[in-house]
Design a protein around this nucleic acid. Structure first.
Lengths: 239, 239
DNA sequence: ACCTGAACACCGTTCAAGT
DNA sequence: ACCTGAACACCGTTCAAGT
């Protein structure tokens, strides 16, 4: 229906896995998860749905490839420099921001087990855990705990974005939730009501990092491990 | 097609939200997420797909209700007794086991934002965090970190179960992954290769609790908070 | 009030047929 | 080798019509 004279009318470049995946990412970003359809994708690529199947095996692979593409640009360059604790924080924040910008990545992350993108995050976290001098036997646990926490937040963020109208303001949303919580049954939800107020001045990113710091404290605290940079996790208290 | 003479032929009880939800849970448990279909559900209830819509608004609500039903039976009775740390461990383990038994709950958990079942888990965790004497301002962070970690593990577990053939043995699966990891590129995946061996003697439940303990250590360590029972989180070291 | 089941508007995926 | 697009076997959801 839309006029498509806007796009330069140069001869159609051949279809390629790369073009397909980048079109898929675009679709996911603009129309959301439910917008990624073989028909919509085919139309955008000016071809039929069947053509796509020559380059990718199916929708699952397409989603995995799209996730890969986004995560790739996120992970690189976040390593080293200011000591392992800072590196972990930076890495985690990178994943957090990527998912904030592409909520569907969060859902995909939480859905696919140990596929390539997640494994790469795990690897980078693990290296910093090693750098923290965590004993061998505990390294897996430490890296897993960090990764699982990140995945949990990722899934929640993705779910939240999906749940609200696309034009909803972030702080309006938090206000609405806080109000909802404050109206919960006083007996059944005493704690939740109690912390409802904190939601209003809640900063997603800060909150996320505070959780990372909590786990880092657990990792370094009990093992006596320390970052080479000597930085200590920030204390868990009101700033 | 299947003979249905087996089921007692008593007169059809009237349809009810309760019957629908419990049939949905059964379907999800036996056939998996992709098996929950309005048509399949209708057949099981000996009615047409349209009838279901008179009792539930749609598939999303049906999934939420099914999750609610399972979580309900999980949360109750896990409180109090042996001090807040143990209570948190028991609560977390309860959620873990529920998701292990009903993998689709993990996916649903990771997908729905702050809906009733998750909020109830949050509430119960929060109460124990309070009991740990965590300062007011940090209670939200502490409870969130625990919940997000649980959700992360939940999502991963659900994804793993979904990824393997239904008859796959658990330790066969871990062995396969460990072998895969051991064959990764030595430069790109140095850490992952390094911990691959630990996967083989990996106990999901133990690993999960070790992560909980890590976070508990972070929570109690830095704030000086302690459980009333005086129990300390178990040290992060080879046992 | 509650149920029925055909029909609608979609999906992902396949495949004969084209170039 | 690569693309086309009709066709297949499904979905969730709606709704006129029944009781």
């Amino acid at each position: 229906m839309a006029t498509r004279t806007r796009r330069p009318e140069r001869r159609q470049e051949p279809l390629s896995r790369e073009r397909i995946v980048s079109a898929a990412v675009e679709l996911l970003d603009t129309v959301g998860e439910s917008g990624l359809t073989f028909r919509a994708l085919a139309e955008r690529l000016a071809t039929g749905p069947g053509a796509i199947y020559w380059h990718v095996a199916g929708k699952a692979e397409l989603l995995a490839a799209a996730t890969d593409a986004v995560v790739d640009t996120t992970i690189t360059g976040h390593d080293a420099d200011a000591g392992p604790q800072e590196a972990i924080r930076a890495l985690a924040l990178g994943v957090f921001e990527a998912i904030d910008a592409h909520p569907w990545v969060g859902a995909q992350f939480a859905r696919t087990p140990w596929q390539s993108p997640m494994l790469r995050v795990f690897e980078h976290i693990g290296r910093q855990v090693q750098a923290l001098r965590v004993p061998q036997a505990a390294q897996f646990t430490a890296a897993s705990a960090l990764l699982n926490y990140i995945l949990g937040v990722a899934g929640q963020n993705a779910a939240n974005v999906r749940a609200v109208r696309p034009d909803t303001d972030r702080s309006d949303f938090l206000d609405a939730v806080a109000t909802e919580w404050a109206e919960l049954d006083a007996d059944q939800y005493a704690f939740t009501r109690n912390v409802a107020g904190q939601l209003r001045k809640h900063d997603d990113e800060e909150e996320f990092l505070a959780g990372i710091d909590l786990i880092l404290t657990g990792i370094t605290g009990i093992t006596g491990a320390t970052g080479i940079g000597g930085a200590t996790a920030r204390p868990l208290s009101a700033d």
